[in-house]
Nucleic acid binder design. Structure first.
Lengths: 142, 142
DNA sequence: TATATCTGTAACAGAAATAGATACACATAT
DNA sequence: ATATGTGTATCTATTTCTGTTACAGATATA
């Protein structure tokens, strides 16, 4: 139960609202309410996944590497965690026991199905959806 | 990414294969390959959720509190964790920022949808399915 | 009744993950 | 040159998970 997906999505949504202007890690950090190093760490992972690019030096910052409507929350989910497993199988159940011997084989498929259902749902939301959702919510509150 | 769902499911599947005989925490622990106290801790949570009962004293052990085909992996998932959140929202984004002010409101619904999709999939598998899956896998290997 | 068995639960320690914070080399615009 | 800003390493505190020991209480059986 970590906040990395939430923060990474916040970061991308923030950049998407900047109209093509590079966003510094300090500016993003002030929106997220954390420190710039954490933002840069996440941006580094997003960049490796091809979701963002960074301009070094003065006047630099982070930009989206592709259109906001082509980045889904599933892309973000994959970017922030190599492992991407909600559930883990337990190590080395007893091979002498009829249940222990095969439980992980049986469980593996069921757990994978559950995680895939979640991932499929994540893929239905894009960063563009997030940005328009943010705009709509702000209008509602105005 | 913890193993509690896997171990709890293992425990229930193991009990389901015992043909109504109470299973001691030591016996279960030897199948899971962990120690009895951990098994008892999980059994305590399963009992609170109404999935198992325990017989104290000599000759005692754990039993299913309802038929195996009426216990789903979603029931197990709910039993082992009060919180049941795969993702967390980040605390206190900046209320001065148009994005930070509303991001959690927008994110909350998307994350909830993803978790619900996962839960719905978990609810399609019962402990009876697990037990028959284990039996089938053992036949395949024989 | 006495004893062995077994549960329920508390307490403690080690390992791993998460997040906050500081620091600094490197890149780049002006 | 200088200021700005990234990329990355390091350290720490906190939390979570798991393993382990310990012991009071319940119960079957001799």
């Amino acid at each position: 139960m970590n906040t990395r997906l939430a923060v990474a999505t916040h970061i991308l949504t923030f950049i998407a609202t900047q109209g093509g202007q590079p966003a510094t890690s300090e500016l993003i950090a002030s929106s997220v309410n954390t420190n710039p190093a954490l933002v840069r760490r996440l941006l580094s992972q997003l960049a490796k996944a091809g979701l963002t690019t960074s301009q070094m030096g003065s006047g630099g910052g982070a930009l989206l590497a592709c259109p906001a409507d082509q980045i889904t929350l599933l892309d973000v989910y994959h970017a922030i965690d190599d492992n991407n497993a909600v559930f883990a199988l337990h190590d080395q159940p007893n091979p002498q026991c009829p249940v222990g011997r095969v439980i992980n084989t049986v469980l593996k498929g069921r757990i994978a199905a559950a995680e895939q259902a979640m991932q499929k749902q994540l893929s239905t939301t894009t960063i563009a959806d997030m940005a328009s959702g943010v705009a709509a919510e702000n209008r509602k509150r105005a």
